[in-house]
Each structure stands twice: as structure tokens, then as C-alpha cells.
């Protein structure tokens, strides 16, 4: 039996909105650690890893490890029916073929339950090695989203370069080219508005903007985003989920053959 009660139900709504464009079907894994997911996009270019730790739920019961295959578009449709202030409870029986989402309004005067069919999904679980990154950039998530959106109107790929001068996002297209440089800026009023660059070695990598733009659907989850880069390794774009966990997107670089 599985019963997970999340007081801030809007977090789950935002999580689904952030990943449903990238991944169609995925297995949600439930264990004593938490509610998690790992899935690749259909071209196997990007990977998303989600963790909502058990401590972040008001009530967390998971009698045995369970993997529940869900169509993310259908799950998002059901979660859209929850109010932003609603408490969401996820329920499932061991070996059952459905999952139930229960929504309670904050004043408890409206209680809904939506039952969704589960599906069998053959998914490969990848081992993600611990890596020392050459550079980690932390910046406002809205700024990163703006940069990805702006550059994608000029070109299809972005070159992200980190030097001691700052982080540079560059693109080229038929109509011209663009460069956006963000310098370290820690003297702002609020820490979430700072750009912090932690660089061990200069790094420069090329990525498809289409995927970067898809990752920025997670912007409502966190005021800040961290971008971890190492030469010739997938970039990690991480959005922390307040006191609960994270959504991490991994994207394979484009490499000169």
C-alpha cells in the first residue's frame, strides 16, 4: 500500500508541467527514500531525474518499493484538476493497476478523487556517475529562461562558455549571431538574484536550444537554477524543489566529429 500526502500540492502540478514535454511515459519509483523518477526523452539525448524526499510529505507510507508506469500527459491532465492550494494525496495498492490522486481544498469542503490507469513501461535505468564539474553557475532561473528563449529566436544551438570573466551564452543563425555574458554578481539585495560562478577550469560546450528551452519549463519550481559543466560531459541543469528535492535535467553536448 502506498499513501503520500503532499500539503503543497502545487509542487506536484509544477513538477509535471516541467517534465511532460520532454518525456511521454515514465516509471515513478516509490521507496522509503522518496518518490522519484528517471527517464530519457525519446531520442535519448536528455535525461530527467526527479526526487521528492519522503520527509517532504506530511504523510508518507510506502510498504514496499513500487514502480508505477504513468503517461505524463494523462497525469498532468488529472493534476490540472487540483486547485493550486489543494492538498494532494497519491494512493495505490500493491500490485494494482491504477493510481488515485485525491485533492482536498484547504478548507476541506471539497474532496475529489481521480483514478488513473497505470501502464507497463520498459525503461532503462541509467547509472549517473558522480562527477567533479569544471564549472558550476548558479543564477536566477527566470534569467536563464529569458536567455534560452531569446537565443532560440536567432539560432538552434547555444555555446555555453565559462571563464573567469563570467558565463557566455552564444548562438548563430541565418539572420546573425548573439552573445550574452553574465558576470558574477553577488552584491545584490536578495541571494536568489545573484549570479555565482564557481570555476575550476574554463569550459565551453555546445547544446541544442530546443532541449534547454524545454528544461526551463521548471522555472516556476525554483527562483534559482544551477548549471554544472564539464568538457565533453552532459550538462546538469538543476532546479531545487524547496525542502523536498530536485528536478535535474542532463543534456548530452554536441561534439565536433
Amino acid at each position: 500500500m502506498l499513501e503520500l500526502r503532499l500539503v503543497q500540492g502545487s509542487l506536484l502540478k509544477k513538477v509535471l508541467e516541467s517534465i511532460k514535454e520532454l518525456v511521454t511515459d515514465a516509471n515513478f519509483d516509490c521507496s522509503s527514500t522518496g518518490f522519484s523518477l528517471q527517464a530519457m526523452d525519446s531520442s535519448h539525448v536528455a535525461l530527467v531525474a526527479l526526487l521528492l524526499r519522503s520527509e517532504g510529505f506530511e504523510h508518507y507510507r510506502c510498504d514496499r518499493n513500487m514502480s508505477m508506469g504513468m503517461n505524463l500527459n494523462n497525469m498532468a491532465k488529472m493534476l490540472k484538476c487540483a486547485g493550486n492550494d489543494d492538498i494532494i494525496t497519491i494512493k495505490a495498492d500493491d500490485g494494482g493497476d491504477t493510481v488515485t490522486f485525491m485533492f482536498e481544498s484547504p478548507t476541506q469542503d471539497k474532496i475529489s478523487d481521480f483514478e488513473m490507469k497505470l501502464m507497463d513501461i520498459d525503461s532503462e535505468h541509467l547509472g549517473i556517475p558522480e562527477a567533479e564539474y569544471h564549472a558550476i553557475v548558479k543564477m536566477p532561473s527566470s534569467e536563464f529562461a529569458r536567455i534560452c528563449r531569446d537565443l532560440s529566436s536567432i539560432g538552434d544551438t547555444v555555446v555555453i562558455s565559462v571563464t573567469k570573466e563570467g558565463v557566455k551564452f552564444s548562438t548563430k543563425g541565418d539572420i546573425g549571431s548573439a552573445n550574452i555574458v553574465c558576470r558574477q554578481n553577488t552584491s545584490v539585495d536578495k541571494p536568489e538574484e545573484a549570479t555565482v560562478i564557481d570555476m575550476n577550469e574554463p569550459v565551453s560546450l555546445t547544446f541544442a536550444l530546443r532541449y534547454m528551452n524545454s528544461f526551463t519549463k521548471a522555472t516556476p519550481l525554483s527562483n534559482t537554477v544551477s548549471i554544472s559543466l564539464s568538457n565533453e560531459l552532459p550538462v546538469v541543469v538543476e532546479y531545487k524543489i524547496a525542502e523536498m528535492g530536485y528536478v535535474r535535467f542532463y543534456l548530452a553536448p554536441k561534439i565536433e566529429e
Binding site: 535519448h44 539525448v45 548530452a252 566529429e257
Partner: peptide
């Protein structure tokens, strides 16, 4: 020309 790599060439099945 830059070739798009796949994530599976960096991370292996666990």
C-alpha cells in the same frame, strides 16, 4: 559540424 551525442554514450545501464 557538431554531432548531437546521446546521453546513453555517457551514462550506462545500472
Amino acid at each position: 559540424v557538431n554531432q548531437q551525442r546521446q546521453i546513453t554514450s555517457f551514462f550506462t545501464k545500472s
